[in-house]
């Protein structure tokens, strides 16, 4: 057993855990934060996506001990009290969810993605050879539907709510762009 301190949603959490406990299980089983979901525990579905110091990661393949001292944000940390994060509102308005199981991961991933985009990070679509439909021409990346889809492809949704998710992200990204202009 090791004592591990991690900042979770702004508060320090102290865990007494074995090193084989994943960050996801630490959140779900030890801290009672069940928002991050377990869909595969193989890094293949994105349902467990959380933010580590603002960067999106899959918490199922992260050992909790390795994240000692890091700042983790889960879906429970997105809303400001009763006030939903704009992306949460947009997901509801565009029906970017059905069963809801992938939703926390999609939300955290989208927030991380928007930050990456603001920082100018390219995607495979940005860098793709011309000729593909919808491929924009080089940086700075325009957050087109194709860009959002590529950047969000690590988050599977079996209900098929993809269109609504993309629409919700696009709406928030547009507001984002307005604000930073």
């Amino acid at each position: 057993m090791a004592e591990v301190r991690i900042r979770v949603n702004g508060a320090t959490a102290t865990l007494d855990i074995e090193p084989q406990v994943s960050l996801l299980d630490a959140l779900r089983e030890h801290l009672g934060l069940t928002g991050a979901k377990k869909g595969c525990a193989q890094g293949a579905c994105g349902a467990c996506t959380v933010l580590a110091d603002g960067e999106r990661i899959v918490s199922c393949l992260a050992l909790a001990v390795q994240y000692e001292g890091r700042e983790i944000t889960t879906v429970e940390g997105l809303a400001d009290g009763e006030r939903l994060h704009p992306l949460q509102k947009a997901f509801i308005a565009h029906d970017g969810l059905q069963c809801g199981y992938c939703t926390p991961g999609q939300l955290c991933s989208a927030i991380g993605m928007l930050a990456e985009h603001r920082a100018g990070a390219p995607s495979a679509v940005t860098e793709q050879p011309p000729g593909l439909p919808e491929a924009p021409s080089g940086p700075p990346p325009v957050l087109s539907e194709a860009e959002i889809r590529e950047r969000m492809s690590g988050n599977l949704c079996r209900c098929g709510a993809y269109n609504g998710i993309v629409a919700a992200i696009q709406e928030v990204a547009a507001t984002d762009a307005e604000m930073t202009r």
Binding site: G43, G46, T49, E55, R56, I57, V58, L61, A62, S109, G112, M113, E116, P122, S123, A124, T126, E127, Q128, R151, M152, S153, G154, N155
Partner: peptide, 19 residues
């Protein structure tokens, strides 16, 4: 070395590439 950037971006998912 654009080939390297493209190769990296075509692998896995954004989350996994961050790790």
């Amino acid at each position: 070395y654009p080939v390297l950037s493209q190769a990296l971006l075509s692998g896995a998912s954004a989350q996994l590439r961050n790790m």
